[in-house]
């Protein structure tokens, strides 16, 4: 198990290197260079800036400098916000995104398990139909639409009540987290519900549930002791991709709800073509996701005895 963890970690580091290299190459494929956007720049300033950011050096050397800095955890300085390190930006804004993301994962996980189990329990009866209809909507409606319509609904409710029940946008209090995290987790929850349902149904017709029935166990006991636990296992395996989906989903949700998280910052950096911030956040997000996938795999190994003991 330990050997497996180490192996995964080494592979993870190689993956992060691959992400960093791809990021570097993609950024250097830009026609012109990062400074060409600023038109009111004299040749002298331009030269100084090129020197400062090392843009005058050959690309191979730039790559080595970049990797060296990366290895020391230095992601560089923002182009558009002078004297702000990318590290500072991440340190300030990531906790907000992380809070939102964790809430969303918790919401999606609990909701997905619960609703998935319900649909399997009431297969082809009305709760199944209603939930699966909602799931299809959840999968088919883009998150920004949910975000926008939930805002619309908050406004309507606040207007109808005559006071502000929930804030429409912003960040700071618990009530600010509630709706955005639900919106953020919705797509993942729909996906998990679907997975949980099919996993439950597969288990219902499995041999060991037949055995449990032949033992004369009560249906509730079979459901709680045998079905749910085994059905949750596949859910854990998709937690990695789910976290990735929620991370990128946060871009939209943070944008719509005006939440000062790293996702919104990233989108703004993209719109302002702030190259160091784009590269820095991409590598950061990439490393974060790789780490999450490794953690989830290790967690799965811990939960499933078949993996744990092998």
């Amino acid at each position: 198990m330990l050997l497996y963890a180490i192996k995964r970690l080494i592979l993870g580091i190689i993956t992060v290197w691959f992400i960093a290299t791809a990021t570097f190459l993609a950024m250097h494929a830009v026609p012109g260079d990062p400074l060409s956007g600023d038109k009111a720049m004299t040749a002298q300033i331009r030269q100084n800036l090129e020197k400062k950011y090392g843009l005058d050096k050959p690309i191979g050397e730039q790559y080595l400098i970049y990797l060296n800095n990366l290895a020391h955890g230095d992601l560089g300085i923002s182009y558009t916000q002078k004297n702000r390190e990318v590290n500072d930006i991440i340190r300030e804004n990531f906790p907000i995104s992380a809070t939102l993301g964790i809430m969303a994962v918790v919401f999606a996980g609990i909701g997905g398990t619960l609703f998935g189990a319900l649909t399997a329990l009431y297969r082809n009866k009305w709760p199944d139909t209603v939930i699966m209809l909602a799931v299809i909507l959840g999968i088919s409606v883009p998150s920004f639409v949910f975000a926008a319509f939930s805002q619309l609904i908050i406004v309507k409710i606040n207007t109808a009540l005559g006071f502000s029940l929930l804030p429409v946008a912003g960040w700071g209090t618990v009530s600010h987290i509630l709706v955005p995290s639900m919106v953020l987790g919705l797509g993942t929850m729909a996906y998990l519900t679907r997975l949980m349902r099919s996993s439950m149904l597969e288990i219902v017709s499995s041999d060991y549930i037949r055995t449990a029935n032949a033992k004369g166990l009560a249906q509730t006991r079979i459901f709680t002791q045998h079905q749910i636990r085994n059905a949750i296992l596949p859910l854990v395996t998709v937690l990695g991709p789910a976290i990735a989906a929620i991370t990128t989903g946060s871009f939209v949700v943070e944008l719509v709800f005006a939440i000062p998280g790293l996702g919104r910052y990233f989108v703004q950096a993209v719109q302002q073509l702030d190259y160091t911030v784009i590269m820095g956040t991409t590598v950061f997000f990439g490393a974060f996701l790789v780490l999450m996938v490794i953690l989830v795999d290790l967690l799965y190994g811990f939960i499933d005895p078949r993996v744990r003991l092998n």
Binding site: A22, A26, A244, T247, T248, I278, T282, L289
Partner: peptide, 15 residues
């Protein structure tokens, strides 16, 4: 392993 949407954005800028 590349975070898909991030790299979509990167490549879009890259092009």
């Amino acid at each position: 392993a590349l975070p898909f949407l991030l790299f979509m954005i990167l490549f879009k800028i890259g092009f």
